[in-house]
């Protein structure tokens, strides 16, 4: 199951996109997600798609790989498309299927909305494919930095996020181990009656929670032993460096924004 889902997976590389400052990437994707909603005609959607394609091309990650990652959401896209196809009643009737009639507006609307959805997922996937989770964390911490003045525990939140990410593979391994141990005791995780399924899930979750609490406790002790006492007086090993290329990419998004405003109908 996890093999097909590439959202959230990092693909190592040295492309210009990989090397962008994570803050720049976060801002680009965030801005893109907002301005996608400005598009309302063929030209503006073409512009947005062009930008997304260019971004992917520069990352040197193969289109087929990205496309494969988008597969799981294809059903959602298809559903949206069909919904609009049959529900929107604008413009001329193009054809008639049984009691349902397809209007010109429906085709347009359906195509645009599906494309919008695809582009949103496409760009956010690009972010995670080219940025390690820890870089994302650093970027978020840095961007949220000003909130510290408002007593938002930014450092703690970022550390929490970093540690959770670090322990995901460990927990996956643990889950697999416990599932195997319970399967050896006759638990069937793939089927059975509802009550059996519930029991199976309990036999997995209880040990998983217990070991996670134990881990958390030991980790906290180890952190204290290694001199951790909150964000005060702490230096940072990972440092972000804003480069001219980051500014250039942000400028490109600004340009995209301007063009969208001009060309939308």
């Amino acid at each position: 199951m996890t093999n097909h889902l590439i959202i959230g997976q990092y693909v190592p590389g040295h492309s210009v996109i990989h090397r962008l400052d994570p803050r720049a990437k976060l801002l680009i994707v965030f801005a893109y997600v907002l301005i996608v909603f400005l598009a309302n005609n063929a030209v503006t959607y073409a512009l947005l798609s062009l930008f997304a394609f260019a971004f992917a091309a520069l990352s040197r990650i193969s289109f087929s790989f990205i496309a494969r990652g988008l597969k799981p959401i294809l059903w959602v896209v298809l559903f949206t498309l069909l919904l609009h196809l049959f529900m929107t009643k604008e413009g001329d009737v193009i054809c008639q299927i049984g009691p349902l009639s397809v209007y010109e507006g429906g085709i347009k609307q359906g195509a645009f909305i599906s494309l919008r959805f695809l582009l949103l997922v496409w760009m956010t996937t690009m972010l995670t494919l080219t940025t390690t989770p820890i870089e994302v964390t650093d970027g978020v911490e840095s961007l949220l930095g000003p909130l510290k003045k408002m007593r938002v525990p930014v450092h703690e939140l970022a550390l929490m996020m970093a540690i959770s990410l670090r322990f995901i593979p460990t927990l996956m391994e643990e889950t697999e181990k416990i599932m195997k141990a319970q399967a050896a005791r006759g638990v069937d995780f793939s089927g059975g009656r509802f009550s059996e399924r519930m029991k199976a899930i309990v036999s997995l979750l209880v040990p998983l929670f217990i070991s996670s609490f134990k881990r958390a406790d030991e980790l906290a002790t180890a952190m204290e032993a290694r001199g951790y006492r909150g964000g005060e007086g702490r230096t940072k090993f990972r440092q972000l460096a804003w480069k001219p290329v980051d500014t250039v990419f942000l400028a490109a998004v600004a340009l995209l924004f301007a063009l969208l405003c001009l060309l939308r109908s």
């Binding site: 195997k180 141990a181 319970q182 050896a184 005791r185 036999s203 040990p207 217990i210 070991s211």
Partner: peptide
Amino acid sequence: RKKVGVVFQFPEHQLF
């Protein structure tokens, strides 16, 4: 699985 019992490493982790 009834005929072949397996005691995994750290089997205490399977108690629930």
